[in-house]
Design a binder for these strands. Structure first.
Length: 525
RNA sequence: GGCCCCGUCGUCUAGCGGUCUAGGACACCGGCCUUUCACGCCGGCAACACGGGUUCGAGUCCCGUCGGGGUCACCA
């Protein structure tokens, strides 16, 4: 039997990081067994612009390299893959359940159910619907209808015994049937509810393994019951632990951003991204642009492989030391048996560590591709950049090395793309390196003279020049180099100074130093 | 509250009765390197929730307690 797994997102407009983890495990499992991974859209709730709300989700999966064999945009033999288009199928199943006696027409009004529920609560006993408005037959149904009532379809759940199934992650699990409710499967208007739809789809799509978050564990008995009542065998279940908040064991939620921001690591991650978004003029919404949503990482220039590798290890491990996995290795090594049962909390620092490590092995050309869009969106380079510019970006990327943690970090080097007289200066650095040291101005002036006459403008050449300079002046290199950095880049920090000067070129360096000197001591008027 | 799940360093985890004075990774703290930043290198801190059993022997098995969480819709 071919393994078929699925992920069933609701079109909400964004892709949650926990959802991706679930999807990833499904994907890995199907790939490992040479099976298929199906994307099904749970839109029984009926929103107007499903397509619009779905796009970011599909884009997210594509970006992550999680491809689906059947589903939206790719089709497949079991379509349609949108629940909103499968209503007829669900109604048929509901009818079948009604006719076979596994479901009944219930004419209770919502208030009446509510009253029963409250009574149960008052008496401190667990609630179970009395079936008082259950229609025994058509005659009784007509009677209820004459009272102006309308019917929903409820599952006629067993009242004794237990539902046992084997969870691939949790082992044998058992629930008492007596604890279950007669769940509604179809509304009065004929539309069907999630549990029915889900079971029907899993069957129709030939899903063999339902790998999903643990919050569905307690839903499993009713789904198991539906499948059984319909004469089907339930798929195998595997309930994943949820992804928890940073430093807590509560479920990670997209709605608690304000609270997560109190966590320093989370905030750092967030603010770093926000800064990049700001620099490229990205209009971000606080609802969808933050570290719980996958799109955040894409827009800031993370490597999808790093994210995926991090997520893989959130609740799963191979052994006591392997942490780095290529896609093929993941597919090879993954197993549900080694998924943990406890929740794993989202750790921004560890994610960043993975990103760092992956970034280090990205070849220059790939790094160039990662980084260019940011320079373009920030209007620092043309959309059709010249070879000279491309060369310059490559040199910067190489010189910056692992200082570029994410694609957007290239913007830390915006000074290489700004006109000499447009440079802005870090006020603290300006003060500390140019204003405060008594000799800074003189030294910079003299160094500028040497620089202007210097031929060999390679990094090595410039270094040689400076070495000679500090020797002649009998100073430490620290006394000049920081002043030069601030004058030439406006910043307190950056990569190697000689490389910086070399990339900028003599003309720009001299010009920038002149501008700085002028700004430092304007000519008396 | 009922039902269910979970409980090893701050975090992710290894551990499937003896090799555990509990291993790795990230973070953290020292030190080295150093023109800043970043990296790198060396070293360090740090955990079996608790209490009973079972056993020659328990992080590992059983029970209980405590703690954390999930779920209880005509949402998905």
């Amino acid at each position: 039997m071919t393994v078929r797994t699925r992920f069933a997102p609701s079109p909400t407009g964004y892709l949650h990081i926990g959802g991706v983890r679930t999807a990833l495990f499904n994907w890995l499992y199907s790939r490992q067994h040479g099976g298929q991974f199906v994307l099904r859209i749970d839109d029984t709730d009926q929103q107007r612009n499903v397509q619009e709300a779905l796009q970011p989700i599909l884009d997210g999966f594509r970006w992550l390299g999680i491809d689906w064999d059947e589903g939206p945009e790719v089709g497949g033999p079991c379509g349609p893959y949108f629940q909103s288009q499968r209503g007829e199928r669900y109604r048929d199943a509901a009818q079948q359940l009604l006719h076979s006696g596994f479901a009944y027409r219930d004419y209770a009004r919502p208030e009446e159910i509510q009253a029963e529920r409250q009574a149960a609560e008052r008496e401190k006993r667990s609630f179970r619907y009395s079936r008082r408005w259950m229609a025994q037959d058509d005659r009784q149904a007509a009677e209820f209808e004459s009272e102006g009532r309308s019917a929903v379809l409820r599952l006629k759940m067993p009242t004794e015994g237990q539902c046992c199934f084997n969870d691939l992650i949790r082992g044998d699990v058992a629930f008492q049937w007596s604890d279950e409710q007669d769940h509604v499967i179809q509304r009065a208007d004929g539309t069907c509810l999630y549990h029915l739809a889900s079971v029907v789809d899993d069957h129709d799509f030939g899903i063999t393994h339902v790998i999903r978050a643990v919050e569905h564990l307690s839903n499993t008995p009713r789904q198991w019951f539906i499948a059984n009542a319909l004469g089907w065998q339930s798929p195998q279940f595997a309930h994943l632990p949820y992804v928890a908040e940073p430093g807590s064991s509560q479920k990670l939620s997209k709605r608690k951003l304000a609270q997560y921001l109190k966590n320093v690591d989370f905030r750092k991650l967030f603010e770093h991204g926000q800064q990049i978004a700001e620099r490229i003029g990205l209009a971000v919404s606080a609802d969808t642009f933050h570290p719980v949503i996958v799109d955040f990482y894409r827009q800031v220039g993370y490597l999808p492989d790093a994210l995926v590798n991090y997520l893989l290890l959130l609740g799963w491990s191979l052994d006591d030391r392997t942490e780095h996995f290529t896609r093929d290795q993941m597919i090879q090594s993954f197993s549900l048996e080694r998924v943990n049962r406890g929740p794993a909390s989202f750790d921004p620092q560890k994610l960043v560590a993975f990103q760092d490590r992956y970034m280090r092995s990205v070849p220059v050309q790939a790094k160039l591709a990662l980084v260019m869009p940011f320079l373009q969106q920030a209007n620092l380079v043309d959309d059709a950049p010249s070879d000279v510019i491309l060369q310059r970006v490559v040199r910067i990327a190489e010189a910056a090395g692992d200082r570029i943690k994410v694609g957007g970090d290239i913007l830390d080097y915006d000074d290489f793309f700004i006109a000499d007289d447009q440079l802005s200066y870090d006020p603290n650095a300006w003060q500390k390196r140019l204003v405060k040291p008594p000799q800074a101005q003189e030294l910079l002036t003299r160094f500028r003279q040497r620089l202007a006459a210097w031929e060999d403008f390679t990094a090595e050449g410039v270094e040689h020049l400076m070495q000679q300079f500090i020797q002649d002046e009998s100073i430490g290199i620290g006394q000049i180099i920081h002043a030069v950095r601030v004058a030439v880049t406006g910043k307190a920090v950056g990569f190697g100074m000689f490389e910086t000067l070399a990339i900028l070129g003599r003309e720009a360096c001299v010009q920038r130093i002149d501008i700085a000197l002028q700004r430092l001591a304007p000519a008396p008027s």
